[in-house]
Write a protein that binds this DNA or RNA. Structure first.
Lengths: 205, 205
DNA sequence: GACGGATCATGACATTCGTCACCGAACAAC
DNA sequence: GTTGTTCGGTGACGAATGTCATGATCCGTC
């Protein structure tokens, strides 16, 4: 391992995929996988001792998700750059990740050499975002929802009645209905449940 | 390649994972990956020419899903056994897969050697079902919903209003509401949207 | 300082939804 | 041949929801 070697931490709850990514990355002679985690918490703990150059994080993990881990890593290990891989490439996720300081963002549909390329790019301080996802994110635009509208819609997305949403958001039921009504018309749904579905596919909630 | 060698077809829309599974399986000297597909249709087409012994199919794919491919494969290539790998291990999916003649069912959280073990088991005519999933499927039991209740609940799950569901199911709105009401009470939800969420996690719709 | 936007609220109204009672037809099981 | 289940339907009632008008406060901007 010379000083050009990239030390990588892998975090993915799907053992099969994680082991597979590790095997593929180990084939590259300038990349070494120094730690593997299956939860966000485990990734943080391992990162503190392994001190990787690049952390490759799955977006969907039990407990802490990839973006949350990235935020914590940026505070604790500023030299460690982060990148996200995900099964469900939704524009809002990309945006949220970039705001968290993530430097790479890939769907799992890419091939292994793209992954290696991205790891190297992120290690050398550049960014690497899947072009397809980037285009979608740009065309999708920003969320039309205000913070509170998004909050309330997210709470309502579980199917809870207005009274429950109001309780959890510490708002009056009337206010909740106003926010929901506004959110539904903004995203163009027939009702709040369809609105929640639309907002979720765009990554707005 | 001697006569003990297992010819495997891999189908998964996540290129990274598929390539990785291929790499891991190729490490086994009695397994060879003879074809790789990223959609269900492609898997069928490749299977006809490659004539694999075992088809490893992702459950979630664009177009035909893994179970549908398994059904078609059983008709067209009866010597080819099928197994399913999936990110979201839901009891209903397992049940549906077994009814379709699938002989192996694994979540992607398993390790690579389990995958190889499962491939060998399926090839030799045995079954291999992840013990965790099997236990969940047994404890989850069968769907409490009748066929129509499940149909209607599935249509309502998108957030469409009753009138729209009625139109798409070719039922009267009143009947739709009766079915929904019955389904909601059976699965134990506060309303149809929560009921749809519950039913989905159990794989009932 | 005027203006607009976000936040939070109330009240009123029509629509939709959830529930119940009740009905009939088809069909399999006893 | 009765019984039970599923399917499909009607009507009615109260509760929940969607929409609108209106108003208050706070905050950033021009």
């Amino acid at each position: 391992m010379n000083d050009r070697t990239v030390k990588v931490l892998l975090a993915d709850d799907e053992h099969l995929i994680r082991g597979a990514m590790a095997a593929l990355l180990e084939l590259e002679d300038d990349i070494v996988v120094v730690a593997q985690a299956s939860t966000g918490e485990e990734a943080l703990a391992l990162a503190r001792t392994a001190e990787p150059d690049v952390a490759v994080l799955d977006l969907e993990m039990p407990g802490l998700d990839g973006v949350s881990v990235a935020v914590r890593l940026r505070e604790e290990l500023p030299f460690c750059h982060t990148m996200i891989v995900t099964s469900h490439g939704q524009p809002g996720h990309l945006k949220r990740a970039l705001e968290a300081g993530v430097r790479g963002f890939l769907p799992k549909t890419v091939s292994a050499d793209v992954l290696a390329t991205a790891v190297r790019a992120v290690h050398s301080g550049r960014r690497y975002v899947d072009p397809q996802l980037a285009a979608e994110a740009i065309s999708a635009g920003n969320s039309p929802l205000t913070r509170r509208e998004a909050d309330v819609l997210a709470l309502a997305a579980t199917g809870a009645p207005v009274s429950e949403v109001a309780r959890r958001a510490a708002l009056s039921p009337g206010t909740v209905r106003n926010y929901l009504s506004s959110a539904v018309s903004k995203v163009g749904g027939a009702n709040r449940h369809e609105a929640a579905r639309i907002a979720r596919t765009h990554g707005w909630i």
